[in-house]
């Protein structure tokens, strides 16, 4: 398994050279194993959540009938005459999901806005410091960035200058996120590199071999050995 582990990790990278059989093998394994696992996990989830609870001590549990009905209704997508049954259940799934999280919206925008307002002028009572200056800046930047999202002329035109500054505030987030993401994710590459060097058994030779194969392919396309055209066009 360590060999498989390292192969999958670096084969995924090999597409940076070009689309190649190692990459497609890794991709096919990820999709196949993932699909199989998902099926098993969901059969198990339905079994534990519904089937085992449908009949308890010889009595039918009526509350468990609804998941059965909803689940079976999904199959109606394949029956054109009953397509509306499928649609009803998919819409219900969507709206019930929304219902669970709907209140978080107003909860968030109200508490965050009030929180920023409460702290904005803390420097008046607590004195000027990095923290109080930051709190004032946060409130100002929040108001500016929110103004960027105005849709209508009546709100957007009089606030053009603020919206431009709002765009800058959003850009600050963008610039910082792009860089921190790159630096954070690069640690993942190093972590696996160290694993290939220090792990037991050492598997560093797998990416090294891949690199050599790609290097050879660059000068002498390996598909010439097979003598077949490739469907890869890039």
């Amino acid at each position: 398994m360590p060999y498989l582990n390292t192969f999958i990790f670096f084969a995924a990278y090999s597409v940076l050279y070009k689309n190649n059989p190692m990459y497609r093998l890794a991709q096919s394994l990820v999709v196949g194993v993932g699909a199989g696992y998902l099926l098993v996990a969901n059969i198990n989830a339905f079994n534990r959540g519904v089937i085992m609870n449908t009949f308890v001590n010889g009595n039918i549990n009526w509350a468990m009938l609804l998941p059965w009905i909803l689940g079976l209704a999904y199959l109606c997508i394949f029956i054109p005459r009953l397509i509306n049954v499928y649609r009803a259940v998919s819409i219900l799934t969507l709206t019930v999901g929304m219902g669970v999280v709907l209140p978080y919206g107003p909860a968030l925008f109200w508490t965050v806005s009030v929180g920023y307002a409460q702290n904005a002028l803390n420097f008046l009572s607590e004195g000027l410091s990095v923290s109080t200056l930051g709190q004032l800046l946060t409130a100002v930047c929040y108001a500016l960035a929110l103004s960027y999202f105005f849709f209508t002329d009546y709100a957007a035109k009089p606030t053009t200058a603020f919206r431009k500054l709002g765009r800058v505030v959003l850009l600050v987030y963008t610039a910082m996120t792009i860089t921190t993401t790159a630096l954070g994710k690069i640690n993942l590459v190093q972590w696996k590199v160290l694993d290939t060097l220090q792990g037991v058994p050492a598997t560093w030779w797998i990416p090294a071999l891949m690199f050599i194969v790609m290097l050879i392919d660059n000068f002498y396309p390996l598909r010439n050995l097979i003598g077949k055209g490739s469907e890869v066009s890039s």
Binding site: M98, L102, Y104, G105, P106, L108, F109, V112, S113, Y116, V130, G134, Q135, L137, T138, A139, V140, C141, Y142, A145, L146, Y148, F149, G166, V169, L170, V172, Y173, M176, T177, T180
Partner: peptide
């Protein structure tokens, strides 16, 4: 220190505005 200040206070506010506009859009 300057980088952390920008990240905590300006990026934080920007993140809030992003989410909150999204939640208003959802309502």
């Amino acid at each position: 220190q300057l980088g952390d200040f920008v990240q905590i206070y300006i990026s934080g506010a920007s993140d809030s505005a992003f989410w909150i506009s999204t939640y208003i859009g959802a309502i």
